[in-house]
Amino acid sequence: MMSLRKITTIGFDADDTLWQNEQFYRLTEQQFTDLLSDFAKGEHITSRLLEAEKRNLAYYGFGIKGFTLSMIETAVEITEGKVPASVIGDILAIGRELLKHPVETMPHARDVLEALRGQYYLVMITKGDLFDQERKLAQSGLGDFFDAVEIVSDKSTTTYRRIFSKTAGGPDCAAMVGNSLKSDIVPALASGAWGIFVPHELTWVYEHVEVPREAPRFREIPDLGHLLPLIQDIAR
Results as ranks from 00 to 15, higher is better:
I45D: 14
T28C: 11
S37F: 06
G81L: 05
F12I: 04
F62D: 12
A52T: 07
K65C: 08
Y121P: 10
L4R: 14
M71F: 13
D111K: 02
Q119Y: 03
T105H: 05
P102T: 04
I72C: 12
E97C: 09
W19N: 11
D15M: 08
D34A: 13
L57R: 15
L130E: 08
M124H: 02
F12C: 04
R96M: 08
V123L: 12
V112N: 00
E80R: 11
N21R: 08
I45R: 13
I88E: 14
I7N: 00
E43T: 04
I72L: 15
E80M: 01
Q31G: 02
H44L: 10
D38G: 09
L4F: 09
T74H: 09
T28I: 07
K41L: 13
F62K: 05
K54T: 11
A75P: 00
E97R: 15
K100R: 13
I91W: 09
I7D: 00
T8C: 00
R48T: 03
K127V: 00
T17W: 06
V123C: 07
T28R: 07
H101W: 02
T46C: 14
V76E: 01
A93F: 10
H108M: 11
L4C: 10
N21F: 11
R26D: 05
Q23I: 03
I10H: 00
L99H: 01
T68W: 02
L57G: 03
V123H: 06
T126S: 00
D16K: 14
I78E: 11
V123W: 01
D129Y: 11
Y60E: 08
Q23E: 04
L50Y: 09
L116G: 06
R55V: 03
D111H: 06
S47N: 11
L130K: 09
E77D: 12
P107W: 12
G61S: 08
A75K: 11
K54V: 13
E97I: 05
P102R: 02
E80T: 10
W19Q: 06
D111W: 03
G42D: 15
R55C: 09
T74W: 15
P107A: 11
A75W: 12
T126L: 01
Q20A: 09
G42V: 04
A75G: 01
D111V: 05
L98C: 07
L36T: 02
I45K: 13
I88H: 13
E22W: 03
R110W: 13
R96Q: 12
D16L: 03
I125G: 00
K41Q: 15
S86R: 04
G63R: 10
Q20K: 10
L92T: 08
A85P: 07
Q30R: 13
R117C: 14
Q31S: 11
T33A: 14
H101G: 02
D90I: 06
T28G: 14
G118V: 01
F32A: 06
A14Y: 05
T46E: 15
M71H: 04
